[in-house]
C-alpha cells in the first residue's frame, strides 16, 4: 500500500523587483511592439489590395516582369479596356441581386431573430440549429439539383433566381447575428413600452430596431459582401442577361495571353461599391461587430 506523501510547496524565488524607472519604459516598449505588430499585420493583409491597385495602373508587360516594378509609368488603359468590355450590365445585376437579397434577408430575418430571442418560440434551440444546419451542405453538392430545378421552371439566367438564392444563402447567418444583437436589448425597455400599450409591430419597429441599428447595419453589410462576391451560383445559373461582377471578372483570365493588369483594373472597380458601403457604415459596423448592439 502506497502512502501519499504531501508535497512540500515550493516557493519560487521572487524576482528582483524592477526599479521604478524601468516600469514605464517596459510599458512603453510593450505598447510599441504591439503597435508595430498591429501595423505589420495590417500591412500584410493590405498588401495584396495595394498590389492589385498598383497593377491596375500598369501595362500588361510591366505587370508580368520577373522582378516586380514599383516604379512605372501609370496608365489608365486597363480601366478604359474594362469599360469598353461592357461592365455596366454586370454591375447593375450585382447591385440588384445584392440590394434586393439583403432587403429580403432583413425583412425575414428581423422577425425571425425577434421570435428566437425576445419572445422565444417553442423549441427555439431546434429552430436555431435548423437554420445553421442549412449551411452545412456544401453548395457544390447541391448545384445539380438546383440547376435542374431552376432549368425546369425556366428561371436560368434570371436575376430573380440569384436574389432568391442569395436570400436563402444569407438568411441563416443573418438570423443568428440578429438574434445575438436582440438579446442585448434590456427587457425593461420593452416591458415599459408594452405598459405604454405599443403593439407588437410598434415594439419591434419603434423601440427595438432603433436600439439595435448598429447590429442591423453590421448584418446587412455582411450580407452585402457575401452577395456581391458570390461566384458559384452566378457562374452556374447565369449566362448573358443576369451575369454578375465576379463572372465578368473571370472573363479576363485567359490561358493564352497576358491579363493581370486588366483583371486588376476590373477587380479594383468591383471592390469600390463594397468599399464604399463599408466606409459609409463604418461607425455602425464597428459598434455592431465589436461592442454589441446596445452596450
Amino acid at each position: 500500500m502506497a502512502t501519499a506523501t504531501p508535497a512540500t510547496p515550493v516557493t519560487p524565488a521572487a524576482p528582483a523587483a524592477p526599479g521604478p524607472a524601468s516600469r514605464p519604459l517596459r510599458r512603453i516598449l510593450g505598447r510599441a511592439s504591439w503597435t508595430a505588430g498591429a501595423w505589420l499585420a495590417a500591412l500584410v493583409f493590405f498588401f495584396p489590395v495595394l498590389w492589385m491597385v498598383l497593377t491596375a495602373f500598369k501595362q500588361e508587360a510591366d505587370a508580368y516582369t520577373t522582378t516586380p516594378h514599383l516604379v512605372f509609368s501609370p496608365t489608365l488603359a486597363q480601366f478604359r479596356a474594362v469599360f469598353h468590355s461592357g461592365i455596366g450590365p454586370y454591375l447593375a445585376n450585382s447591385a440588384l441581386a445584392t440590394v434586393l437579397s439583403t432587403l429580403l434577408v432583413l425583412v425575414l430575418g428581423i422577425p425571425a431573430g425577434y421570435a428566437l430571442s425576445i419572445r422565444s418560440v417553442r423549441k427555439w434551440r431546434d429552430a436555431l440549429f435548423f437554420f445553421i444546419s442549412t449551411k452545412m451542405l456544401p453548395v457544390v453538392a447541391a448545384i445539380v439539383p438546383i440547376y435542374l430545378a431552376v432549368r425546369d421552371i425556366g428561371a436560368l439566367d434570371n436575376i430573380g433566381t440569384l436574389i432568391v438564392l442569395y436570400t436563402a444563402m444569407n438568411l441563416p447567418i443573418a438570423v443568428w447575428m440578429l438574434r445575438s444583437f436582440f438579446l442585448e436589448v434590456p427587457v425593461e425597455v420593452l416591458e415599459a413600452a408594452r405598459v405604454d400599450g405599443v403593439t407588437l409591430r410598434q415594439e419591434i419597429t419603434r423601440v427595438m430596431l432603433p436600439m439595435v441599428a448598429p447590429g442591423i447595419a453590421a448584418t446587412a453589410l455582411i450580407c452585402v459582401i457575401f452577395s456581391w462576391n458570390e461566384f458559384f451560383f452566378a457562374l452556374n445559373l447565369t449566362s448573358v442577361r443576369a451575369a454578375t461582377m465576379p463572372v465578368f471578372l473571370v472573363g479576363f483570365m485567359t490561358s493564352e495571353g497576358l491579363y493581370w493588369a486588366k483583371l486588376a483594373a476590373a477587380a479594383t472597380l468591383a471592390c469600390l461599391p463594397v468599399l464604399l458601403a463599408g466606409w459609409i457604415a463604418q461607425k455602425q459596423l464597428v459598434r455592431g461587430l465589436s461592442m454589441g448592439a446596445v452596450k
Binding site: 450590365p89 445585376n93 440588384l96 434586393l100 430573380g160 442577361r241 451575369a243
Partner: peptide, 19 residues
C-alpha cells in the same frame, strides 16, 4: 421603391437591356 426594384428584377436582368 422595393416593388419597382422587384419588377426590374423580374425582367431577367440588366444584361437583357438592349437585347
Amino acid at each position: 421603391s422595393v416593388a419597382g426594384l422587384l419588377l426590374t428584377a423580374g425582367c431577367a436582368g440588366a444584361g437583357a437591356v438592349g437585347g
